[in-house]
Design a protein around this nucleic acid. Sequence first.
DNA 1: AGATTGTTATAACAAAAGTTAGTTACGAGG
DNA 2: CCTCGTAACTAACTTTTGTTATAACAATCT
Lengths: 260, 260
Amino acid sequence: MCYLKIEMVWWGALAEFLIRKLEHFTSLSSDDKQALDQAARQRTRRIRSRDDIVHEGDLPQGVNLILEGWACRYKTLEDGRRQIIAYLLPGDLCDHNVAILREMDHSIGTVTAVTLAEIPTETMRQLTSGHARLSQALCWESLVAAAIQREWTVNIGQRTAFERLGHLLCELYVRLRAVGLTQGCACELPLTQAEIADTIGLSVVHVNRTLQELRSVGLISLRGRELTIHRLDALQRAVQFNPNYLHLGREGRHLDSNEV
Amino acid sequence: MCYLKIEMVWWGALAEFLIRKLEHFTSLSSDDKQALDQAARQRTRRIRSRDDIVHEGDLPQGVNLILEGWACRYKTLEDGRRQIIAYLLPGDLCDHNVAILREMDHSIGTVTAVTLAEIPTETMRQLTSGHARLSQALCWESLVAAAIQREWTVNIGQRTAFERLGHLLCELYVRLRAVGLTQGCACELPLTQAEIADTIGLSVVHVNRTLQELRSVGLISLRGRELTIHRLDALQRAVQFNPNYLHLGREGRHLDSNEV
DNA sequence: AGATTGTTATAACAAAAGTTAGTTACGAGG
DNA sequence: CCTCGTAACTAACTTTTGTTATAACAATCT
């Protein structure tokens, strides 16, 4: 009971999703959480849908924390081809330490409207030096981000179109679930088929074909912006999705927003 | 003259290649270099060609520094498909901080025979806490590694077979050049075509076809284990290789081993 | 309401890449 | 020097994926 009460205090914290994510790795003290939330409150910003947050060539700034909405890292080639390199979901930190570099080698843009917290480098430094547990958790966060990037290399390099798409959907679902943004076996999927195509290295037409295929075998539904994965374990097996690279500790753990 | 003399002292340091690489980012003090070299001397290990250094599922250990030879990170799917995720060249550090994780989500294997230094986590901690400049340089090192991983996603996702292969060759050449392991426009390339195939997500047959194509347009020669890039700028343009993601500071800077 | 634009869905065809099945070249070891 | 195993190369054929075009539909703007 008392435990529940403490949790309630943090319900509605700005850094809510980040805290939930980090607690898959370690449990944070009330002080850790408070410090993190304070850091997130310093400066928040709202960016509209399909807009750029940072652009390739920019001077890197402090750390950004996604509070709400979806963003993505991407890179554009001279002839217009674009590759989406990563999705940034609520609770994701971007560019921890990147201020060391002279210029950004890629851009970050929004998918939906996004609310983000800009955490100054100095605040970040204080956070990590004063809170050992938290510092470790943030380090875990960036190791997981690197592991996801590696998995994407595997996904695009080795898997068939069917597996690639299914794998992406599994990953997004599991990551959203880890921060409590799923409702049962459904979650939001605000991506257009063109964006999915630029993510998994296929043409829009082929993404459409492959989506039809995933639907026709009864693994998923996708209407409007809502994705439903009917049997996650079946989809995982069908596309060889092994969530170990997300290092969530308690792998199959269910954490719906209506269940806490 | 005096400067040259100081440099000569470090000629032959175990951490020689790492030091050269880091000096593309910042200049290190003699003390920094000595500390780094001491760390590398603590425990070195020799692994024979095509052998595993760490295996997926292992408990992560301290940091490894490649002193000599080529290694790679890779991941294998259940049905045997394999993706090479990264190449580890002399001077590359692997798994800075990875000891935080419960288990390795990928394997690391050698390509050639490899000499590596195992730097204990504690030594690493001392290094970074006692040497601010060095600590920053190591941070840069890991940011560059992440940038390379992102570029590979772009490479496999968006580029044609011709561009993919050319891009890989450019990257390897430039990275080797950054540590002084090129001879003019030539460098070692100890990869089999099967390994190249697993790197850029193509079949062996198609890698062979594409290599023929790169040869026939006169951009490269590849005999035995020696790669020659006849006109680097032409190849860069042909495959849209932009080295900014390597963050080497002085981009086109020439640094041959016979030129220092 | 009407026009504009973006997204999804399809079909027909073209191009790229994979598969299979070899042959040839080469280097290590007996 | 020869044999054996690996790697490189080649050709014929198949499959996957991309391209172009078009239609239906939805969302947004005027």
